[in-house]
């Protein structure tokens, strides 16, 4: 049986990724360039809230201290969050949001496909459901990255700028530490580094079709596995957790 503490931490990582990116996407509500995109971005956000609920609920069960998915989402502090840094970056313009979505969804398609064979049945079931959603997110983001890369001079510049700015946050997606190593041995987690060649190949194809340059791998940001974040996460949490913190005795 897996060390419950490792499994708990692993579930928080998966859950926090969904929770934090869903929050960023929800910020697009009433702000997208077309109503159709307003609906699409909030739809992705809804998928991710559902995923966060399922994963954090399971994390609470694994931890065994009676914490619910809401306790975990609304009552942890900055250093207890384990999402990848890329998820918490501010939305930027539409190009930045779509470029991030492509880089993240491409990774998530590979991750959840592999996790749908996890020996942990709950993870496998959540992964199978999630896979259908992230394939759609990826297809949508791919369309926009190509359209904007190969649209006008301005859209090309914005998209290339977005891809360049995001690139240093992609290395972290493929990192593994002792928590991963233990769970990989038990057939529960996936060796994320093994997903990298496929991810690079796919992203290379899309960027080439979009007439964009693939950035060179340089300095890569890191820290989320130890709960070390960008300055942006604290602001997300102070907004997201405001009512729960201000009225600790209330149920909503």
């Amino acid at each position: 049986m897996a060390d419950q503490n490792n499994l708990f931490k692993y579930l928080l990582r998966l859950g926090d990724n969904a929770l934090v990116l869903s929050h960023r996407l929800s910020e697009w509500c009433s702000r997208a360039p077309l109503i159709e995109e307003d609906l699409a971005l909030t739809n992705f956000s809804l998928d991710m809230i559902g995923r966060a609920q399922a994963l954090l609920k399971y994390a609470g069960e694994v931890e065994g201290k009676g914490r619910t998915e809401d306790d975990l989402a609304y009552k942890r502090a900055e250093r207890q969050f384990y999402n990848h840094l890329v998820m918490e970056l501010p939305n930027g313009d539409f190009a930045f949001t779509m470029a991030r979505q492509l880089l993240v969804s491409a990774f998530e398609c590979l991750l959840f496909e592999a996790l749908s064979n996890s020996k942990d049945e709950t993870i496998a079931a959540i992964a199978a459901k999630t896979l259908k959603e992230v394939k759609y997110h990826r297809a949508h983001a791919e369309d926009w990255v190509i359209r904007l890369g190969d649209g006008t001079e301005e859209s090309y510049q914005r998209m290339q700028h977005a891809v360049n700015a995001l690139w240093m946050y992609t290395g972290e997606l493929f990192e593994a530490d002792e928590v991963d190593a233990e769970l990989i041995r038990e057939g529960i987690a996936v060796d994320q580094n093994s997903l990298r060649p496929q991810w690079q190949e796919y992203i290379g194809q899309v960027l080439t079709e979009a007439k964009l340059q693939v950035p060179a791998d340089g300095y890569m940001q890191t820290g989320s596995r130890k709960g070390i974040h960008t300055e942006h996460l604290g602001h997300i949490l102070s907004e997201m957790q405001y009512l729960q913190r201000a009225y600790p005795d209330a149920t909503w």
Binding site: S26, E27, N43
Partner: peptide, 25 residues
Amino acid sequence: ITRAPSLRAKQILLAKIQDEGGHGL
């Protein structure tokens, strides 16, 4: 939306606003 007090409340509110955008369409 970004201050909804629970995951369920956020989901319901977001779905509702999305419906309204759809009605607009």
